[in-house]
């Protein structure tokens, strides 16, 4: 049931967010949007399990990446973002989840809306689309505290400037880059209207972030005429952990 994953690479995305790349033997490939349970065990046998979204595209060679935000009061995330080294082994179970997923044969327009580290499972969808050579129309609206907190910035830039691009829009909530046209603020109805697929295209909307973020966005989307059956939500609790 529990698989052993070996840490093969670590990458600091920001000051508080790290990507852990693992090689897992006998691992069945995931679907973009799924998560895994990670178990860590102390020398006296005490163990703790948390769920983390998979950030990488599906693949058949047993590799996966988890992008983990360090929560100051967290029990497991400080360990995974500060202590773990290449060569360490972690126990994993999964992949888990069959609802908040994008399968690379889906062709309908997709609207992704992420808040903070809610970008992680959406990035897996974007990467899955790229690795499958899919031309499904994708838009991403990414709400983030400040420019330095943006995850995957360069990769998103590349993917938005190629054939069949993913259209990426940012909403900065606390601090904006120099010359940014919109003052800091949360996503509102006008930003939804100006940057996301209109409801008459019947996109499937994936919304991921803290609970209050998801509640707000789902409300804005339904007010714009998106069907509730077209909105898939993944909420973090106020603890932020597990996702």
């Amino acid at each position: 049931m529990w698989h052993v994953g070996t840490v093969v690479a670590l990458n600091d995305e920001t000051e508080t967010v790290r990507t852990v790349r693992l090689k897992v033997s006998n691992w069945r490939s995931h679907v973009a949007g799924q998560h895994v349970d990670v178990r860590v065990t102390a020398s006296d046998g005490y163990s703790a399990v948390r769920s983390y979204s998979i950030a990488s595209a599906p693949n058949s060679d047993g590799h996966l990446e988890l992008t983990i935000e360090r929560l100051p009061e967290g029990e497991v995330s400080p360990y995974l973002t500060q202590e773990v080294e290449v060569g360490d082994r972690l126990e994993l179970r999964g992949p888990i989840g069959g609802w908040f997923v994008w399968r690379n044969y889906q062709t309908e327009p997709v609207q992704l809306i992420g808040g903070g580290s809610g970008i992680v499972p959406l990035m897996a969808m974007i990467r899955s689309r790229a690795s499958a050579g899919s031309s499904a129309p994708f838009r991403l609206l990414y709400s983030v505290r400040e420019p330095s907190a943006v995850l995957y910035r360069d990769e998103l830039h590349t993917l938005s400037n190629r054939d069949y691009p993913v259209t990426v829009s940012y909403a900065y909530t606390r601090a904006i880059p120099q010359g940014w046209p919109r003052p800091p603020g949360h996503i509102d109805a006008s930003l939804i209207a100006n940057t996301t697929w209109p409801s008459n295209l019947a996109p499937i909307c994936y919304v991921c972030g803290p609970t209050s973020f998801v509640e707000t966005i789902a409300g804005l989307l339904t007010a714009c005429g998106h069907g509730t059956d077209k909105i898939r939500a993944e909420r973090f609790g106020p603890t932020g952990e597990p996702q």
Binding site: A48, E75, E215, I231, R235, G237, T239
Partner: peptide
């Protein structure tokens, strides 16, 4: 087994809140 204690009340739902 496998649970941890929280004092707040996280929300988990698959779609919008009706």
């Amino acid at each position: 087994p496998g649970q941890y204690l929280t004092t707040d009340f996280p929300v988990l739902s698959a779609g919008p809140t009706p």
